[in-house]
């Protein structure tokens, strides 16, 4: 399986996302912002960082990068796309996901190990978690406060599209403690905390982040492989 990781100017966690994909057993393929060719990847990660310096508004410029034109089209066709932190912001700016990520309520950048509860396990990126599973993943952002209008929030909740919620403390003031959401089809996921930083015992607070990457491998393997992998679902 080939997981593409996009590098925008100012992307920072692109190497980490590629490493996480490799550890999960995928082939990591680096995609360049100026190249619209997706190089036959099976899934795409939009990594964390400060694409284009986060000038104008986080993700607002990246959304117009040539590679994004292709990703937006492919995502509408079902390509699994995971946006982490800045990648989540890009997905919102690209209108692949609803809502917006605004300045943390306390106005500070915050980096800490954050407990999350996985709420939706029917997406391309979360199917290897158990519903309600509590996971520990680093969060680090200055503009991670998720906001949307009441109707959108109700709709997200009603359709089971909140994929993870902050528990034991909300690090940025996100509405309804939302840490991540998915689109209607479940192939596009945006998450503010960084699963790619929780894939090795040596450097992360847990191995919980790996589940996002193994999930997409399972969803790509399709129904036939589903049965074989099911035994390994619970970590």
């Amino acid at each position: 399986m080939r997981i593409g990781v996009v590098t925008f100017p100012g992307s920072l966690d692109d190497g980490d996302a590629a490493r996480a994909a490799r550890i999960a057993g995928a082939e990591a393929v680096r995609l360049w912002h100026g190249d619209p060719d997706l190089h036959r990847v099976d899934a795409v990660v939009l990594p964390g960082g400060f694409s284009y310096g986060d000038y104008l508004r986080c993700g607002a410029i990246a959304r117009f990068a040539p590679v994004m034109e292709s990703i937006i089209d492919a995502a509408r066709g079902g390509l699994p796309v995971l946006g982490i932190c800045n990648g989540f912001q890009v997905l919102c700016e690209a209108h692949l996901l609803p809502g917006a990520l605004t300045r943390n309520q306390h106005l500070h950048f915050r980096n800490r190990d954050q407990w999350l509860r996985v709420e939706a396990t029917n997406t391309a990126w979360t199917n290897r978690f158990a519903p309600g599973q509590e996971i520990l993943i680093p969060v680090k952002n200055g503009e991670g406060c998720f906001v949307a209008d009441q109707r959108t929030l109700d709709q997200l909740e009603g359709e089971g599209r909140v994929i993870a919620r902050y528990i034991r403390g909300n690090p940025n003031g996100s509405q309804r403690d939302i840490a991540g959401i998915t689109n209607e089809a479940g192939n596009v996921v945006g998450i503010m905390p960084h699963p790619e930083h929780a894939v090795e015992a040596l450097t992360g607070p847990s191995l919980d982040g790996l589940g996002f990457f193994t999930s997409v491998l399972r969803s790509l393997a399709g129904a036939s492989a589903d049965g074989q992998l099911a035994g390994g679902q619970q970590r």
Binding site: A75, R76, C92, E93, H95, L96, L97, P98, G99, A100, T102, V147, A148, D149, Q150, R151, T152, Q175, N183, E184, A185, V188
Partner: peptide, 24 residues
């Protein structure tokens, strides 16, 4: 309740004022 949230939204998401946000 709602009033504050909608104000926040208008400020932070000028791309989609008043309309449904997200069209995936």
């Amino acid at each position: 309740p709602t009033a504050v949230r909608s104000v926040t939204l208008e400020i932070t998401d000028p791309q989609a004022p008043g309309g449904p946000i997200g069209n995936a």
